[in-house]
C-alpha cells in the first residue's frame, strides 16, 4: 500500500494551566489525546465534536502552527514537526488551511489580489501581470467577480471574504485543505453556497479535505467519511451517511439528538 497523503499517528497535546494562585493545583488539560487518522488523496473527511473537544488544536498541529507533545504528523511520509523550517515552508504547498473567522483571517490593509497570490509568491517569483492573471482566475474559481481585485477586506461581505480565503489557500494548488469551522461564522444560505463551492473545487482539483465542524448538517452535505471527537479523543469513525443514520457511540447519538432538536425548533 502506498503512503497516504496525510497520516496522523497518536498525536497528543496537553495544555498546562496553573490553578488559582493559592490552591497550588495544576490542571492539565488533555486537549488532544492519542489521535490517529489518515487521509488519502481526494478523501473528504469530516471531524465533528462539541466546542472544546480539541478539534482546532488538532488542526493547528496538523498544519504545523503548534507542536504536538507526542506523536507525529506525516505529510506524504515526511514528519512535518521534525523537519527544518525551510523544508516545512516548502511542504506548505501541499497543505493549506481555511480559518474559522473570515473577518480576522485577512490582513485589513492588504488588497484582495495581493492576499490571494501571497502564498504563491512565497514559492515562485511572478511578474505583476502574471500575478493579476492568477488572481483573476482564482477569483473566478471561487465565484467572485474580477472587480474585487483591488478591494480591501472591509469592503467585502463575510461570504465573499471566506471565498477569498479559499482562493488564497488554493493558489498554491495544494493536495490537502484543512477547513477549521470554515462556514460556522456565515449565515445559513451563505454556508450552503460555500459548501457547494468546496464540493465543486474538491472534485475539480481532486482535493483531500479535512472539514472540521460542529455542524452535522454541513458535514453531511460535504463529507464522505466522518470522525467524531470528544474530549481530545476520537470516539467513533466511519462512513458519513451510515454513521449519521446509525450511530453506535452514545456521544454521537447525543450530538445527533441535539442537532435534531435544533432543527425541530427551527421548523
Amino acid at each position: 500500500m502506498s503512503t497516504p497523503l496525510l497520516n496522523v499517528e497518536a498525536v497528543s497535546r496537553v495544555y498546562h494551566s496553573l490553578g488559582g494562585m493559592f490552591s497550588g493545583k495544576r490542571h492539565n488539560v488533555r486537549a488532544v489525546n492519542q489521535v490517529s487518522l489518515s487521509l488519502a488523496e481526494g478523501d473528504v473527511v469530516g471531524l465533528v465534536g462539541e466546542s472544546g473537544s480539541g478539534k482546532s488544536t488538532l488542526a493547528r498541529m496538523i498544519i504545523g502552527l503548534e507542536q504536538p507533545d507526542s506523536g507525529q504528523v506525516l505529510l506524504k511520509g515526511a514528519n512535518i514537526h521534525a523537519c527544518r523550517a525551510q523544508q516545512l515552508r516548502r511542504m506548505r504547498q501541499t497543505m493549506q488551511m481555511v480559518f474559522q473567522n473570515p473577518y480576522t483571517a485577512l490582513n485589513p490593509l492588504q488588497r484582495i489580489d495581493a492576499a490571494i497570490v501571497e502564498p504563491l509568491v512565497n514559492f515562485k517569483s511572478l511578474s505583476q501581470k502574471e500575478r493579476t492573471t492568477v488572481a483573476v482566475r482564482a477569483l473566478e474559481d471561487v465565484g467572485l467577480p474580477a472587480r474585487l481585485l483591488h478591494a480591501y477586506p472591509h469592503q467585502l461581505s463575510g461570504g465573499e471574504r471566506q471565498r477569498v480565503c479559499i482562493a488564497r489557500a488554493l493558489s498554491v494548488q495544494p493536495k490537502l485543505l484543512l477547513c477549521d469551522e470554515a462556514v460556522s461564522a456565515l449565515d445559513k444560505t451563505v454556508q450552503a453556497q460555500v459548501l457547494t463551492l468546496l464540493r465543486q473545487l474538491q472534485q475539480r482539483y481532486k482535493l483531500a479535505i479535512l472539514f472540521i465542524s460542529h455542524d452535522l448538517a454541513a458535514v453531511n452535505q460535504l463529507c464522505d467519511k466522518l470522525l467524531v471527537m470528544r474530549q481530545g479523543e476520537i470516539v467513533e469513525r466511519g462512513n458519513c451517511q451510515t454513521l449519521l443514520s446509525n450511530a453506535t457511540h452514545p456521544y454521537t447519538q447525543k450530538l445527533l439528538a441535539a442537532n435534531h432538536y435544533l432543527e425541530g425548533v427551527g421548523q
Binding site: I63, R89, M97, A105, E118, N122, R168
Partner: peptide
C-alpha cells in the same frame, strides 16, 4: 491574529511577515 497564522500557513518568511503584515498594521 488569524491573518498572521494564515500567512505562516501560506509559507511566508519572517521578512515578509514583518514587511507586509506587521509593519503596515
Amino acid at each position: 491574529a488569524d491573518y498572521i497564522s494564515a500567512a505562516l500557513v501560506g509559507g511566508a518568511s519572517q521578512f515578509r511577515l514583518a514587511i507586509t503584515h506587521l509593519l503596515p498594521n
